[in-house]
Amino acid sequence: MYETYRDLPPIQITTESTKGNQTGTWRTFRPVIDLDKCDRCYTCWIFCPDVSIIVEEEGDYPSIDLIHCKGCGICANDCGPGAITMEREPL
């Protein structure tokens, strides 16, 4: 959006969110949720460092924002009922 120094704001200030960063490309392993095992405790949502577990409304099952999920695997490691597995991304 900026072309030259002339377009710059007088003071360096941010203008957009990091949502534009596709950190999902960092991922080696992808979390996959088995909804039959999920008991909707939302542990995965609470601990996700990348705000990449989506729960729209109370009662909903969680889903994963694969654009941003870095594949750390915390959600799978800490899932009480073991509903999340980490699967190798294709090369």
Binding site: S17, T18, K19, G20, N21, Q22, T23, W26, R27, P49, D50, V51, S52, D65, I67, H68, K70, G71, C72, G73, I74
Partner: peptide, 9 residues
């Protein structure tokens, strides 16, 4: 927001 620069985990 998601998309920040922290290392995985």
């Amino acid at each position: 927001h998601p998309g920040h620069s922290a290392c995985p985990g």
